[in-house]
Design a protein around this nucleic acid. Structure first.
Length: 569
RNA sequence: GGCGAGGUAGCUCAGCUGGUUAGAGCGCAUGAUUCAUAAUCAUGAGGUCGGCGGUUCAAUCCCGCCUCUCGCUACCA
């Protein structure tokens, strides 16, 4: 792309730390916030007032690395001119994929394009990352969303070299269906930036579809590996040995295809016990046990088909197409449910025909019933494979089947009469309440330890003299009135009995306290703070609050029995 | 603040270009059954389709406003 002149070179001014000889990311610059005068604001944001900043907005900027004053210095960057691809993207996605891309993906791409695309820098000044492979580019690396997609290609290439495959088949062959499975937060990268790169380079194919998923939460909270709010696969495999497919099943049936969804352990248990075990596992077990009991485990032959048998066989034939159709449309939940319907068909067929009853009077009929039931099992071993690969293999083994392909499914002649089946084994086992409780407890524990460990107490501020402290006049007071300040999210207007007088204080605590609930509350109040107008109300003082690690607030309440106006020292 | 997606039975979700009693799975209730890991099969009870207003003979589905959730993005002080 560089050789083709696909990039724009642009020079701009950014803060530079002369001592460390590097450009500073916004995060590495601190200074005084121009809005709230907090002296510890970062170059990208002031954590005191929450304002988003540019590094050049800061008053008295300092480098967080050396403590020195950074200087503005010119730096050169390479930009991908996304605007040049706007028309092409419009044609390709807005017109070309109006009907086959998911609404969330299409909508967001359209929104971006409608707003007009800007050239986007693909390099950064950082001392870590993938270096820019050009002369005189010390200290410059590739922007993560420029180098990550290239990483997908490199990874394919590495895999291909190890396995003797041709990586270009996957990325350049027009016959290849390239699909990007991503989360909704990455839509712009996979639908605009990466395709623009591929298009610019010229010899790559484009994704046929980018079916972005929404987000999966865990027990009602955002999944976060850094907060350890996650289910780690290696732990899962140790704690639930042999249950890979259970997790696959639950994740597929809960997949956030159209909106955010929640993974809960209770749901995991219920899907295992009530669906996988009760419907799928149980049906297979019924068929195998009956065959074992009545025919020494040998597949019986068909002795004659009733109308009902023919109907069932016809239904079996429809499953592969139904399932693959759903898969083609990226409706994985639907495909999975359809697969389970085949097991349901089996259960119903057995119950309707009651082989355990007619065995006493009509052995020939039982042969047919069990043959068809076993054919359903055989079909299951094929159509379950995309969702439950381990189970599919175990089931095939139980049936003494060679590995079969998708095209082998859909008929009732997969198992040959006379074939000896293995002894029945359970495909799934019940997951008990205690097991689930333990997993939930494990998560609760991380939540507790998270709260404790991620909280870093701020370093103490500069020392002050006693006289400085003595200037503060803090008193015991009581809230006697409280109401929300209109058109604000955070503010409550409080009337406080300070013992000296009854005064109005506006306090930013509305997110944590209902007005009615705090009337009568004893508080500590700074009474000699200069009055300030907030939302047109004069606030005369300040209520002292403690702020917890998660941002929640609590009153600094005086002990019981202390009267209004008592001094706090 | 702007944009995008979503808000349908207790839970998870379907509902095509608007049209008789809004569907499925799980859960729940009742009945049947006992080959099967108290599994299965049948039947049933659950929804003013987020709220308000509009278009229409007719709206879950179209339009407007509001509200809540998630994502992208911006900016003022």
């Amino acid at each position: 792309m560089f050789d083709q002149g696909d990039f724009i070179e642009k020079t701009s001014e950014q803060y530079f730390d002369e001592e460390n000889n590097q450009f500073l990311a916004d995060r590495y610059i601190t200074g005084t916030c121009p809005h709230c005068s907090n002296e510890r604001a970062y170059g990208d944001q002031c954590e005191n007032c929450g304002t988003t900043l540019n590094a050049t907005d800061l008053i008295n900027p300092k480098s967080a690395r050396s403590g020195n004053v950074p200087v503005l210095k010119e730096t050169k960057h390479w930009f991908l001119p996304l605007d040049k691809y706007e028309n092409w993207l419009k044609e390709w996605i807005i017109e070309g994929h109006k009907d086959d891309w998911k609404p969330n993906v299409y909508g967001q791409v359209k929104s971006w394009i409608d707003h007009g695309l800007q050239p986007r820098a693909v390099t950064r000044d950082l001392d870590w990352g993938v270096k820019v492979p050009l002369p005189d580019t010390d200290g410059k690396v590739l922007y993560v969303w420029f180098d990550a997609p290239i990483g997908y290609i490199s990874a394919t290439r590495e895999w291909a070299e190890q396995t003797g495959a041709n990586w270009e088949t996957w990325w350049k062959d027009p016959e290849t269906r390239l699909l990007h499975f991503i989360g909704k937060d990455n839509i712009v990268f996979h639908c605009i930036i990466f395709p623009a790169m591929l298009k610019a380079e010229g010899s790559y194919i484009l994704p046929e579809n980018v079916p972005a998923f929404e987000f999966l939460n865990l027990e009602n909270d955002k999944i976060s590996t850094s907060r350890n709010w996650a289910i780690w696969l290696h732990e899962y495999l140790e704690e639930f040995p042999g249950k890979q497919d259970v997790l696959r099943y639950v994740l597929t049936s809960n997949a956030p295809e159209t909106k955010d969804n929640d993974f809960t352990w209770k749901d995991f248990q219920s899907k295992n016990n009530n669906e996988l075990l009760a419907i799928f596992g149980n049906f297979v077990n019924r068929a195998l046990v009956l065959t074992q009991k009545y025919f020494e485990g040998k597949v019986p032959e068909i002795t004659g088909l009733t109308e009902e048998d023919k109907k069932v066989i016809d239904e079996i034939g429809q499953f592969p197409a139904k399932i693959s159709h759903s898969l083609d449309l990226f409706r994985f939940r639907e495909a999975l449910a359809e697969m389970m319907n085949l097991a349901r068909l089996g259960n119903k067929y057995l119950t309707d025909n009651e082989p355990w009853k007619i065995i006493k009077t009509d052995v020939e009929r039982v042969k047919t019933v069990l043959n068809i039931s076993l054919q359903i099992c055989a079909n299951l071993s094929i159509v379950a494979e995309p969702f439950l690969p381990f189970t599919a293999q175990r089931l095939a083994d139980l049936l003494n089947l060679e590995t079969l392909k998708w095209k082998d499914a859909g008929n009732a002649e997969i198992l040959k009469p006379g074939v000896l089946l293995r002894n029945p084994e359970y495909l799934f086992e019940k997951i008990e309440d205690e097991t689930i409780a333990a997993q939930v407890q494990k998560l609760l524990d991380t939540k507790i330890s998270n709260a404790a460990s991620t909280f870093k107490a701020k370093p103490s501020r500069e020392n002050i003299e006693f006289d400085d402290f003595a200037k503060l006049d803090i008193r015991v007071g009581t809230i006697i009135e409280a109401e929300k300040v209109a058109k604000t999210k955070k503010l409550l207007k409080l009337k406080i009995d300070t013992g000296i007088d009854k005064r109005t204080v506006v306090s930013g605590i509305a997110e944590y306290f209902e007005p009615e609930a705090i009337i009568g509350k004893k508080v500590s109040i700074l009474v000699n703070l200069a009055p300030k107008q907030l939302k047109g109300i004069e606030s005369q003082g300040m209520i002292l609050m403690a702020e917890n690690s998660d941002g929640t607030l609590g009153f600094m309440s005086p002990p019981e029995g202390f009267v209004n106006g008592s001094e706090i020292r």
